[in-house]
């Protein structure tokens, strides 16, 4: 066991534990905070995978904005799900084994794949080449189309979100 492996296992355990808390804890505010912890764990994994750029982006976008949005939504819709009501619906005892079953089958399927246990010395990599990646995103021979589509999607989502959430006078729409 190298130190990196130990740290990885530790972080993986924390990540999965807080993920479980996200879906099971009663208070939504706590769930949101555990979501932040999970996202940090994922950012750590990105970093160990050699993608420092996306590790930072994960923190900026997920923790910095999405998690904050969720926390805002939790606060705006407070006092509705009071404590007596169960936080999970009646079918949860059925889905817990189902989820385990799905997990087991995914692992089973993956383990029959030849590249499953690929080893690579990640510490020797220099990370992603951000310069190349940035150029490729705006290169007509590269990924300019996905990039533009994503931008349009984001703008559309923004306009849509503003429109949906806007308070209307007169109760139309």
């Amino acid at each position: 066991m190298t130190p990196l492996q130990i740290v990885f296992l530790l972080v993986a355990a924390i990540t999965l534990f807080s993920a479980v808390m996200v879906v099971s804890i009663r208070g939504m505010m706590h769930a949101a905070l555990f979501l932040v912890l999970t996202l940090m764990g994922v950012a750590f994994m990105f970093a160990t995978l050699g993608s420092r750029f996306f590790a930072i982006i994960q923190i900026l976008v997920y923790i910095g904005s999405i998690a904050i949005l969720i926390i805002f939504a939790v606060m705006l819709t407070r006092n509705i799900m009071d404590a007596e009501v169960a936080s999970l619906n009646r079918g949860w005892w059925f889905f817990a084994p189902l989820a385990l079953l799905i997990f087991a089958s995914i692992v089973l399927v993956l383990s029959s794949w030849s590249a499953f246990a690929t080893l690579r010395d990640l510490s020797s990599t220099s990370g992603e080449n951000i310069l190349e990646f940035g150029k490729a995103l705006t290169d007509p021979n590269g990924f300019v189309i996905p990039f533009e589509v994503a931008s349009v999607l984001l703008v559309a989502a923004m306009v849509g979100a503003v429109y949906i959430a806007m308070e209307r006078r007169g109760g139309r729409g």
Partner: peptide, 25 residues
């Protein structure tokens, strides 16, 4: 020297936890 499988297993775990949350919350 972390094998690829570890990442895949963690990701699978995260994924099913997410499914569980979506279905039961």
């Amino acid at each position: 020297m972390i094998p690829l499988s570890w990442y895949l297993i963690v990701a699978a775990g995260l994924f099913v936890v997410g499914i569980f949350g979506v279905l039961t919350r």
